[in-house]
Simulated assay, not measured.
Amino acid sequence: MIDQQASLNLSQYKGLMVGDAFLHNMDFVVEDLIASPSHVENLISILCEQMDTKNRVIAGTIFGKKYSVLAMNLFKAIIEQGTILDAHPSQVGLKPDKKGSMQFIFKESTVHSISSLSIRQVQMMIYTFIDTHLQPLFEAIAAKSGSKVTHMLSLVAHNLYQTSKKLKLEHPEKVEEIDTYFALFISDKLFVHGKPNPLSFEFDLYDPENGDDSYYVRKHCCLSYLRYDGDKARCCGTCPFIDRTKKKNG
């Protein structure tokens, strides 16, 4: 466990609330969502209301996109703060925010300095987040919403790709470290006995002809545009439905 200042620093990240003072804000504990279909039903009802949609598949899929923010922040905290959050499902609280966004609530005791842990301990925390938290949570959401687990996981993996690219631009002196931890999140390195990492995806890197920064194109649409009568002009900038004339493998 590390000092209170580290918790305050992490709370500056989008969607993160770190510290015991925030515990009263949580509406759900991830562990309860995984174990209880009635909790999931309640959450999906809230998401549909916040997103102004009756389509549960849309709500469930967008939940996957919004949840990718947590994976992004876990990755960023390792690189930028030298800290890792214990994201075991019993330790993470959720509060649905406006328009389906999520507040992720952590006890102060879940924050650890990378330097205070062994390599294996850090690896196990990343593995636990993927295998014990993310995968079963998305399966529970998909079972009640009708959304596809693979699509939700690919949205998380895509955010990790985008985050890795951005971190390398912002911290060129940490490229090797970024690659090392990125591989732990998206490769099969932590998975044994032939079990695949559910975040193991590859994405095409697109270079806009107008000279804008390159970006990775998603494998699957988050379906947000369907909330606007299927207007594809409302698709996200990295959506696969956007017509692009120049792609290259990243």
Rank of each mutant, 00 (worst) to 15 (best):
M1C: 10
I2A: 14
D3T: 11
D3R: 13
Q4W: 07
S7H: 03
S7R: 10
Q12C: 11
Q12N: 10
Y13R: 09
L16W: 06
V18K: 05
D20G: 12
H24M: 11
H24T: 03
M26R: 15
D27H: 14
D27G: 09
F28L: 02
V29W: 13
D32N: 09
S38N: 15
N42C: 12
L43F: 02
L47K: 08
E49C: 06
Q50V: 02
D52V: 06
D52E: 14
D52N: 01
K54G: 14
R56A: 15
R56M: 07
I58K: 07
G60Q: 04
I62P: 03
F63P: 01
K66T: 01
M72K: 09
F75R: 05
A77W: 02
A77K: 03
I78H: 01
E80P: 01
Q81Y: 05
L85W: 08
D86G: 10
A87D: 04
Q91K: 04
Q91F: 14
K99A: 07
S101H: 14
M102Q: 13
I105R: 08
K107E: 15
K107T: 04
K107P: 12
H112S: 13
H112K: 13
S113G: 09
S113M: 08
I114D: 06
S116N: 08
S118M: 06
I119Y: 03
Y127N: 04
I130A: 00
D131C: 09
T132M: 08
T132A: 11
L134R: 07
Q135T: 09
Q135Y: 13
P136E: 12
S145W: 02
S147E: 03
M152V: 00
M152Y: 14
L153I: 04
L155N: 15
L155A: 12
V156E: 12
V156W: 09
Y161E: 02
Q162G: 14
T163R: 00
T163L: 00
S164T: 02
K166N: 11
L169F: 05
P172L: 02
P172H: 08
E173T: 15
K174E: 04
E176T: 15
E177K: 10
Y181Q: 01
F182R: 05
S187F: 05
L190K: 11
L190M: 10
H193K: 06
P198S: 11
P198Q: 04
L199K: 05
S200L: 08
S200Y: 13
Y206G: 03
Y206E: 14
D207P: 03
D207Q: 10
P208F: 12
N210H: 11
D212K: 13
Y215Q: 03
Y216R: 06
V217M: 11
R218V: 03
R218S: 14
R218Y: 05
K219E: 13
K219M: 04
K219Y: 02
C222Q: 06
C222V: 01
L223W: 12
R227V: 01
D231Q: 09
K232S: 11
C235A: 04
T238P: 02
T238I: 12
K248Y: 07
K248L: 04
G250W: 08
G250Q: 05
